[in-house]
Each structure stands twice: as structure tokens, then as C-alpha cells.
Nucleic acid binder design. Structure first.
Lengths: 208, 208
DNA sequence: ACCTGAACACCGTTCAAGT
DNA sequence: ACCTGAACACCGTTCAAGT
């Protein structure tokens, strides 16, 4: 192959949605979200920009795919644990790791709902463990919500600070701050579960 | 005025940085970040796009101004309190309110460092109260960091959910979830302050 | 079936020119 | 001093045309 000219010939151009999205993620990781244009992405794949529309509906669709791809990486550590606290904590730590590996994709998280099926599956495992530990559905939703909020907020702060000179408190300290907040939230969740929901004078049986 | 043609004549065109940024914020609040272009903004102000460059270095500069303007709104409630917990909690609640009033500006928070002087001043008041309560500088920074992360994370989730049909749990419940996480964090901060920092065998004076 | 060229309606930004 | 016209190098996207 590449017999015509020794110029560019970057790839055999067997395009596919996967290849398009993968290359887009590589481009964004390397040069930032603003550097992603259909024309530049096409060039990277050795193809005209218009060819991409065969595999991607839109630029918005491409961005959705990027968002999903990052969430798809999610590989929580303590996969075999059944302790809700370890599962939920592990999910948060895995999310932090993933987000910090793709900091340029973070703005998409402010715009797109979390719907990647892989991520949803991971969340389901946490939900099951919490249900098994006696949490009620509303409590479970709240717990996961709260931990997710904190984690994405942290990733945003952290990714910002990484560019700044002044507050380059070393990574160890930022990680410690994350850990501190996460443990505080897990404590809060555990405590709320042990206590009754609100101030109701005579709770019947075990709920309020 | 408006004697030439009864067509458009939107403003006397006495441009200023303030007017440019204010109109930009109005445009973004109304139509989203993507709708903001120099040409459209110029049109709204009754002026050609190029005139804006007299008052704004760049589009990036304009976005920075938007970010700062939103943070400038920050008006925490319990302004006269000296209780650190009330001050820090009030700051978080005020930030939440402001962010939810300008949801389209949220993506900028993933990209720009928080540097608006008004916001910094508010933060300084919280820092002073915490120092007065006996927190050490590192603890103070960590506390404010953690609460800020959580709040911005929450705002992102909340703003997303507001568009979605399925999870439109009513506002009251979302606010309750925010409150729950915030209180958990404040509890954690208070507890960490009462306890020793790490496992140090013989702490001196009053912290054990 | 898959890719392309040309075209359309937009961008941000510069610069010399108008008043 | 402040605003503008024309221009440049880019965008996303459509559509008819090529192979």
C-alpha cells in the first residue's frame, strides 16, 4: 500500500464509527476540545471531512460518542466486593481516575447526560449492593448522586489546577483532598441510613 | 432617535465593556453558549462585530468576563454571621443559586479558574472565620475546596436534569439532596477538626 | 456502498480606511 | 477616538456526482 505517493497515507481508510470516535478522542486528548473539527479529524484519518458523516450523524453525535467512550473506560477496582461502601467508593475513585485521564473531555459532562451503558451497568452493581444492605431506593439514588456530583466537581477543579502554576499542590495532596471529601460523604450516607429519615416522633416498624 | 429607518435601532450604541459583557450574558442565558458569536452579539447591540474588539480582547476574553460576571453575583445570605459553618454553608448555597440561574455558563467553569475578585472576597470572609475558629490554613483550603467541588458538581447534574423528562424529580428533592451532601461535608470538616490530623501519638496542647 | 467536490451559510480576527 | 468594509482562513453541513 501507499504506492502512489510517499506523502501522507496515514491509514488504509477502512472507516468505521469506532475508528472515527477513537481518533477523535485521541485528537481531543492531545489538543483539546476546540481543536476537534470535522475537517481536521478527516485529515487525521486520511479522508475528506464529508466521509465522516457516513459514520456519525453530527458533530453533536460525535461529541456524545466521546463522552460515552470516556465513561466506558470505567473499571472500578474492588469488583468482587459486596460491601456497598467499598463499591460506591471504588466507583468514585475509578471515575476520578478516568476523568483525569481525559481532562479535555470534561466540558462535555456539563452538557450531556450520563447514559453510557457500561457506566450504567457499573452503577447497577452499586445499587444492588446498597439495596442488599437495606437502603431504600430513594436513599440509593441520593447516595450515588451525591458521590457523583462530588467526583465530577473534583475532577473539574483538579484539571484546572493542573495547568496553573501557583496552586500546583502536588498530586498527592489533591488526591488526599478528594479522599477526605469522599469519606465524609460516605460517612454521611452511612449515618443517615442508621438514623431515621426526618424528625418523626414515633416511627413505625423500621422506616418513618 | 431612530429617525432614519423604523427598522432595527436597538440601542444608542454607546458601547462599553460592561454593556458588551452584559448583553453577552443575556444572549447566553437566553439561547445557550453556542449561540454566542461576535457577529450575533454585535447585531444585538446595533453594531458590527468588529466594533466589539474595542472593548474585548478576544472571544476568550469575553468568555472570561461572562464567567467572572456570574461569580460576581454571589450574595451569600447570612452575611453577618461569624460561625464558620454557617458562612461556608451560606457560600455553597449562594453559589448553587447563582449557578442554577445561569446554567448555560456552566461549561465555562470546567475551563476557567475562579478568579473573580468579588468571589474571592467572599471566600476570604469564610477563611477568616475558619481561622478564627482554630482551623489551620491547609484545613481551610481543603474545606473550601471540597465544598466548592461538591457545589459545582451538583449544579452540573442539576442543570442537566432540568432538561430531561424522566428524572425531573421536583426541585424540592434536588435541593434536599444538595443539602444532604453539603451537611455531610460540613460534618466531616467539623469532625476532622476536632480529631487529630493523622495518627500522631502525642499531640500537643488541646488537639487530641 | 462508500467516498468526494463544490457550494452555502456561517465563524473569529486583522487591517486599512472612514468619520 | 470610535466604528466599519472588505478580506482571510477557517467552520458544519448538504447534495449531486463520481467510483
Amino acid at each position: 500500500m501507499a504506492t502512489k505517493r510517499g506523502e501522507n497515507v496515514p491509514a488504509p481508510a477502512g472507516l468505521s464509527r469506532e475508528r472515527v470516535c477513537g481518533e477523535a478522542l485521541a485528537l481531543v486528548d492531545a489538543e483539546g476540545l476546540e481543536a476537534l473539527s470535522m475537517r481536521r479529524l478527516g485529515a487525521r484519518l486520511g479522508v475528506e471531512a464529508m466521509s465522516l458523516y457516513r459514520h456519525v450523524r453530527n458533530k453533536a453525535d460525535l461529541l456524545d460518542a466521546l463522552h460515552a467512550a470516556v465513561l466506558g473506560d470505567l473499571k472500578p477496582e474492588g469488583g468482587d466486593a459486596r460491601d456497598w461502601r467499598e463499591l460506591l467508593g471504588g466507583l468514585a475513585r475509578a471515575l476520578r481516575t478516568t476523568l483525569l485521564q481525559h481532562p479535555h473531555v470534561l466540558p462535555l459532562f456539563t452538557t450531556r447526560p450520563v447514559r453510557a451503558p457500561e457506566a450504567v451497568a457499573t452503577v447497577t452493581r452499586v445499587q444492588d449492593a446498597m439495596a442488599h444492605a437495606g437502603f431504600r431506593p430513594a436513599e440509593i439514588e441520593q447516595a450515588i448522586y451525591v458521590v457523583g456530583m462530588f467526583t465530577i466537581g473534583h475532577a473539574i477543579f483538579d484539571a484546572q489546577g493542573a495547568h496553573r502554576a501557583a496552586e500546583r499542590a502536588d498530586d498527592r495532596r489533591r488526591a488526599a483532598t478528594f479522599r477526605f471529601g469522599l469519606e465524609a460523604l460516605l460517612d454521611g450516607i452511612a449515618r443517615a441510613h442508621r438514623r431515621p429519615r426526618r424528625q418523626s416522633p414515633i416511627p413505625r416498624s423500621h422506616s418513618s
